[in-house]
């Protein structure tokens, strides 16, 4: 029935899972896991002897323990590996205390620094983690140890949530907003309202004036990039610089951010969204080794 047809969920980003074909867990070694239960997405990562073995990234449901379980189950799918073979697990993220099978809960700040260090290498000194409902600027040393951080978790401006509101308003899928925002000949002035609620009304006004969606997205992406830059500048950006979290995949934000900061973020083939879970799995490995001594 037409009435029952669900409204298109533009915010619904693509879930994914991955297995490293070069690793065979049966060869032995320490099997450790990290589960990052965020406000919007949950990632599970399994590592064998500190090497990335498999991962999953999916939406967080209304129940954190259940989300942790399903991400873990999906990561393990088809590998033959079972949860009882995992020697230590670290829970992290917004719902870290609700990871049922975790050996320990560690903050996402520490895990993102550690995971960023793994993904982008020891030269990373500044990590920007842009998540679904918060944004963190983290400074770390060559071991991925946190030396300072700043965080915004109070306001939706500058978080994935704000971007979702715009995707929904414009009817553009969240996976496409970044690319679409770059399809403008000249960069429009940024949306002037900070608050997402007010920015949304401002954008409606712009649409009424006849602005195309691309231009509105460009205006919002540059406002958002600017907002994040102010957070970063408060803590100072030391090279090398890397971005983790879901918004690292939004090229519209990343490009504008790099331009304003005049710093090019490091690139990697790995999914920037699993950085927190990778950090968790690396910490879990250390926990297991300590226990053995």
């Amino acid at each position: 029935m037409a009435e029952e047809q669900k409204k298109t969920e533009y915010w619904r980003w693509t879930e994914s899972r991955w297995t490293n074909p070069d690793i065979d867990w049966k060869q032995g070694g320490i099997v450790s896991a990290g589960v990052d239960v965020g406000s919007v997405s949950t990632q599970a990562v399994i590592m064998v002897d500190g090497q990335l073995y498999c991962s999953s990234s999916m939406r967080t449901g209304s129940d954190s323990p259940e989300s942790a379980n399903s991400a873990m189950k999906w990561a393990l799918e088809g590998t033959g590996l079972t949860t009882d073979k995992i020697q230590a697990t670290v829970g992290t993220g917004y719902g870290r205390v609700n990871v049922p099978f975790a050996t320990k809960a560690i903050t996402e700040i520490a895990c993102h620094a550690r995971g960023g260090n793994f993904i982008y290498g020891p030269q990373v000194r500044t990590i920007l983690d842009m998540g679904g409902q918060d944004c963190k600027a983290i400074r770390c040393d060559e071991k991925g140890k946190v030396t300072a951080f700043l965080m915004n978790d109070k306001c939706a401006a500058g978080t994935g949530r704000g971007m979702e509101v715009f995707a929904d308003l414009l009817g553009v899928h969240i996976n496409d907003v970044g690319k679409m925002s770059l399809q403008v000949d000249t960069e429009p002035p940024p949306v002037s309202s900070t608050c997402v609620v007010f920015a949304k009304s401002e954008a409606s006004g712009l649409l009424r004036q006849g602005w195309p969606k691309e231009k509105v997205l460009a205006a919002y992406c540059s406002a958002m990039a600017h907002r994040v830059v102010t957070l970063l500048e408060r803590i100072g950006v030391e090279k090398e610089f890397a971005i983790t979290g879901g918004i690292a995949k939004n090229i519209g934000i990343v490009n504008r951010l790099s331009k304003e900061l005049n710093v090019t973020p490091l690139k990697s083939d790995l999914d920037p969204q699993i950085a927190g879970a990778i950090g968790g799995a690396l910490f879990a490995k250390v926990l297991f080794e300590k226990k053995g001594k």
């Binding site: 209304s62 409902q133 109070k154 306001c155 939706a156 949530r161 704000g162 509101v165 608050c195 997402v196 609620v197």
Partner: peptide, 16 residues
């Protein structure tokens, strides 16, 4: 939540 956007989600979860 302080933010109106976050508060809206919190309201929904309180209703649930």
């Amino acid at each position: 939540a302080q933010c109106a956007v976050f508060a809206e989600s919190e309201v929904v979860s309180l209703v649930h």
